[in-house]
Design a protein around this nucleic acid. Structure first.
Lengths: 197, 197
DNA sequence: ATAAGAATTGAACGACCGTTCTAATTCATT
DNA sequence: AATGAATTAGAACGGTCGTTCAATTCTTAT
């Protein structure tokens, strides 16, 4: 039924795959449609057959990437039983799955006045997702008595910026060697919010 | 003593001033020579009379900015007597004087294959300067017994990435409101390295 | 007053950008 | 085999970019 020989879905997937790679490596401005075309093996014109423009393409990829990050975490999260374990878990998850460079591209796009407000809003909504995850963990820890009462908003920002800052190192160092640093950061942070017994 | 007959120094200063501003706001790629020309009131051609090209101009500004940051810190540092005070001091100094967006421009330039290796090296040398400052403070604290013995390299990276991550917030929030966060970060970090008595 | 040279302009260049358009090709249906 | 829609390529467009360069104005020394 309805078998297609040339199925443009494969083309679309190829383009998405290569575009994700290139945007990740070069950010938004520095990645050109031409390059994506060349890498994917389809003409520039064909990219515009599948996607309205470069901006929308990028936003879609960013959404896919963050969605992937989030669902992977949701799966992993259920394997941890305490908020403390979850905080270590999210640290590792961020290290190995966060696409820092893609987010960098999002900042480029957002800081360009020519970008559509719609795209900027979409990207902002994405950037906020990890913070929501951190907050939920901290909340849980406070509620079940693992962590002391405190300013959860502030804690969220503090752990979020720390993990975000550490992620910058992924540009220059291999992921595995960074794991002790992420663990150490979580340990230090935990020491200051853990309930004293 | 070869007194300047007539000086284009003012023009050069104007260009430097406006270029610093624009690079800070837009990063490297998104800032155009045209815009710098317009903002400074001098023609595009004249910018090339003073500077070899956009890349060299940017590197010069980054160097000036970091130099300024460093000397300002050197002055401030002498007013603190303990390593603990210095760590709080550097936190505030970073918050109010670190030009995060300019450094962002440096990353853009460095990740562009067309950039000269010379420029990339120069920018790397700059990016390393704050780390040297953090390290010196931690070293001092260990030597005079304020901080316990520990892995200073790791500590340096941890506090560096944390302050760096927090600096990202300067894009969207006003500096003063961020001060408690910086203080809190330093407090948490200190708690884990302070000598237990 | 004039010549020399520094400062400055503005037009022009080639390259690349994102995007559009047209035409060719391929496929499913008749 | 013919038709028509879906898919793909490739050329072309207008715009901006960084850069160059010849021409011009200004400043100073003679």
């Amino acid at each position: 039924m309805n078998k297609r020989r040339y199925n443009s879905e494969k083309a679309k997937r190829d383009i998405i795959e290569k575009a994700t790679l290139i945007f990740s490596q070069k950010g938004y401005n520095q990645a050109s449609v031409q390059e994506i075309s060349k890498a994917s093996g389809y003409s520039k014109g064909h990219i515009y057959y599948h996607f309205e423009n470069k901006e929308k393409l990028f936003v879609l990829l960013a959404q896919n990437t963050m969605q992937d990050w989030y669902t992977k975490w949701a799966v992993k999260e259920s394997s941890y039983s305490t908020a403390t374990e979850k905080l270590y878990g999210i640290g590792k998850h961020v290290l190995y799955n966060y696409q820092t460079p893609l987010l960098k591209g999002g900042q480029e796009l957002a800081s360009n006045p020519a970008s559509s407000l719609e795209s900027i809003k979409a990207l902002h909504d994405l950037a906020v997702i990890p913070m929501g995850v951190y907050r939920a963990i901290l909340q849980e820890g406070v509620e079940n008595g693992e962590f002391e009462e405190g300013n959860i908003n502030e804690w969220t920002i503090l752990i979020g910026t720390w993990l975000g800052g550490l992620c910058q190192l992924t540009n220059t160092q291999d992921l595995h060697s960074l794991e002790p640093l992420f663990i150490q950061a979580v340990t230090i942070f935990l020491a200051s919010i853990k309930r004293r017994i």
